[in-house]
């Protein structure tokens, strides 16, 4: 069970309080109508499944209910960093 630092509550909490909402940084296309079916399908359904660093969107569901991003190693489960929505990760895969 992960121990997660909530960047809004500014302390570590148990994973039970959080939900993972999938891959981070999936921006909704600004003009959906301009997307082809394939582009829209990729936005909707296609996600990375890396072995190693992964950027994820989490929400402190039972706490402050704020979303934030997390960079996590999918092999070791180490959390490399958490950062707020709108910020970019400082730890990235090579």
């Amino acid at each position: 069970m992960l121990h997660i630092y909530c960047p809004h509550c500014a302390e570590y909490r148990e994973e039970e309080e959080f939900h993972c909402a999938g891959q981070a940084h999936i921006a909704r296309p600004l003009d959906p109508e301009a997307c082809s079916d394939q582009e829209w399908g990729e936005y909707l359904f296609f996600r990375k499944n890396p072995r190693g660093l992964h950027h994820e969107l989490w929400v402190h569901a039972a706490g402050c209910r704020k979303f934030f991003n997390m960079t996590r190693d999918t092999q070791t489960y180490e959390i490399k960093e958490v950062y707020k929505i709108g910020e970019q990760p400082s730890v990235v895969a090579e």
């Binding site: 148990e14 039970e16 309080e17 039972a62 402050c64």
Partner: peptide, 10 residues
Amino acid sequence: VVSTLFAKSG
């Protein structure tokens, strides 16, 4: 103050 889980509620 914390908002958190309480048993299976909050």
